[in-house]
């Protein structure tokens, strides 16, 4: 591999099926990368040492310092199942806060999985651990629980960059939250990754089209990382 993918970029791997599959880096390793795939994924059938033909890196990844000016405060927001997509960013700034949301406690990752420099904020939608979700829900919490929303507003105000990997159906509400807190957010202040099948990776097949209030985009060439505000309801 000539070049490893950066956070949010992907490789198209030939895993023996009739179309290639996108692999996203979860951790950079030397010249390569670790990736996390769901159980049953084609990559799980590879034998150790197997050679895999890959195209890439492809796509627009997370853009942390497009002007070359490094950032100091990075906020990461992830749904538990999408968390590996943010893995390469865990040490991308001196100060990183990671907000992880899961349906319930058992789906939260163990805290020892993260570098000690990452400040964790855990959220469950049933209130079984950490803050009470959903992230964007406001209003009073039941006794003994604290809403995640209040904490999230503080973190959005604090961050120099916000990178999100979650269920895209949540992006309009998260975009609205960022817009409320930051009033005039600059382009790419908040970025969100969309993970969809990308069989061609070249902008040809239209399988990866993502509907946004500002029109359709192709995840493979226009994304898969988009400005979160692209999802802001009109």
């Amino acid at each position: 591999m000539d070049q490893a993918p950066e956070a949010g970029e992907f490789m198209l791997a030939d895993l023996g099926g009739p179309v290639r599959e996108a692999l996203f880096p979860s951790t950079p390793v030397g010249d390569g990368f670790d990736t996390v795939v769901p159980p049953g994924h084609g990559a799980t059938r590879l034998l150790p040492g197997a050679t895999v033909d890959m195209l890439g890196p492809l796509g627009r990844g997370f853009r942390l310092a497009p002007t070359g000016y490094p950032i100091a405060r990075l906020l990461l927001i992830a749904g538990a199942e999408s968390l590996p997509l943010l893995g390469p960013l865990f040490q991308a700034a001196p100060s990183v806060v990671l907000v992880v949301e899961a349906a319930t406690r058992a789906q939260l990752p163990p805290p020892n999985r993260f570098p000690p420099t990452v400040e964790l904020t855990l959220v469950t939608r049933d209130g079984s651990a950490g803050y009470l979700g959903p992230l964007e829900a406001e209003g009073a919490a039941p006794a003994g629980l604290e809403r995640a929303h209040t904490r999230l507003v503080e973190l959005v105000a604090w961050a120099e960059r916000i990178c999100v990997a979650h269920d895209p159906s949540r992006y309009p509400a998260l975009a609205a939250l960022v817009k409320r807190v930051r009033l005039q957010p600059h382009a790419d202040l908040a970025q969100a990754i969309v993970r969809v099948p990308m069989p061609c990776g070249a902008g040809v097949c239209d399988v990866c089209r993502v509907a946004t209030p500002r029109g359709e985009r192709r995840a493979c060439v226009d994304g898969p990382v988009f400005d979160l505000l692209d999802f802001l309801p009109e």
């Binding site: 099926g17 009739p18 179309v19 069989p199 399988v207 089209r209």
Partner: peptide, 11 residues
């Protein structure tokens, strides 16, 4: 928009 099954796929 895509379903893959063994050696075939539909789009």
């Amino acid at each position: 928009r895509i379903a893959v099954h063994e050696d075939s796929f539909v789009v």
